[in-house]
């Protein structure tokens, strides 16, 4: 067994252990506080833990399947996220072809370029080619009402759901000396740090949360949750330095940046939800809401994490 798979196995056992613990706590809480299923918070907690099991198993399968598995998983995430996003934006008949192109042309090409490891084209495909070609497709239909608004929203949807989200699997294309064959662990590092930050902010917030940090954007986020979550997720990230090309100090700094980007990304996506008058992006993940509700922090942290790592550690 390669050291990469061995490390992956250790990580999975660790995450599995935490989930077993979470499920046991959830079970005890349910027995004590909500035996008839009437306590909404406890029921939601258990639904979330159950969904976590499903997500961890799905990611583990993708990791075992290798590069293609990871690309397919994130291509599906992009598809489902884009579907949630487009559902909420203002579209008119005239956008039909531009939106169809976003789903059936831009998204597949974006992931194909990652598969083909064509970083040069991949990195400008959505920001340059799609950026210029999409409004051309839309303008052909001749409908000018809300034109700028409509094309901007489709651009934003593509940048967030396809381009930014695909920076998670893009980590596989980095060539870091002495780290060959271990890139998948970078994905694990990013996902574990971001998601543990989200979960720990929720836990710290539930336990000690008093002061609302952004009442107009997200009534459930608190200063106590933010500080506790970011600090403890940074510690977790630092303690995972052995799966990364970083030193413990560097891993801590990276984790801090990841968690901060994730937090503010969550606020930005909340602002969009408030504006559109919805509580969740969708209903794909039981207890969590839509896929974007789970992915928002990853989307904002992945490109920054990718580029920091690429600039200082990668040869490509």
């Amino acid at each position: 067994m390669s050291t990469a798979s061995l490390d992956m196995l250790k990580l999975l056992l660790g995450v599995g252990g935490i989930l077993v613990l979470a499920s046991s706590v959830g079970y005890v809480l349910k027995r004590k506080l909500s035996p008839d299923g009437s306590n909404g918070a406890i029921e939601n907690l258990n639904a979330r833990i159950k969904a976590w099991w499903a997500m961890v198993i799905l990611i583990a399968i993708a990791f075992v399947a290798g590069r293609v598995g990871v690309l397919l998983l994130f291509a599906f995430c992009s598809f489902a996220a884009l579907r949630e996003f487009i559902t909420l934006i203002n579209t008119r008949r005239g956008d039909h072809w531009a939106i169809a192109a976003a789903f059936f042309v831009v998204l597949p090409i974006n992931y194909f370029l990652l598969w083909a490891e064509q970083y040069g084209i991949y990195s400008i495909f959505v920001p340059v080619y799609a950026f210029l070609l999409m409004p051309i497709v839309a303008v052909m239909r001749g409908d000018t009402r809300d034109f700028l608004l409509r094309i901007s929203e489709v651009q934003w949807a593509l940048m967030i759901c396809v381009f930014c989200a695909s920076h998670v699997p893009a980590l596989l294309t980095l060539q870091i000396p002495g780290y060959e064959g271990r890139n998948v662990l970078l994905i694990a590092f990013l996902v574990i740090v971001v998601q543990s930050s989200d979960v720990l902010q929720y836990v710290w917030g539930k336990l000690f949360g008093k002061t609302k940090i952004a009442p107009t954007l997200s009534p459930s986020k608190t200063v106590e949750g933010f500080v506790g979550g970011v600090a403890s997720a940074t510690l977790i990230g630092a303690s995972l330095w052995w799966i990364t090309p970083f030193t413990p100090m560097q891993a801590a700094l990276m984790s801090l940046i990841i968690t901060l980007m994730g937090f503010f990304g969550g606020l930005v996506m909340s602002a969009i939800k408030r504006d559109r008058g919805v509580k969740d992006w969708g209903h794909l993940i039981e207890g969590h809401g839509g896929l974007i509700d789970r992915l928002d922090s990853v989307v904002f942290s992945a490109p920054i994490f990718f580029h920091l790592t690429r600039y200082w550690w990668s040869l490509t």
Partner: peptide, 12 residues
């Protein structure tokens, strides 16, 4: 799939 289109777009 609005009238007259033949490619459906994914929406919830």
């Amino acid at each position: 799939m609005p009238k007259g289109e033949f490619v459906p777009i994914p929406l919830i």
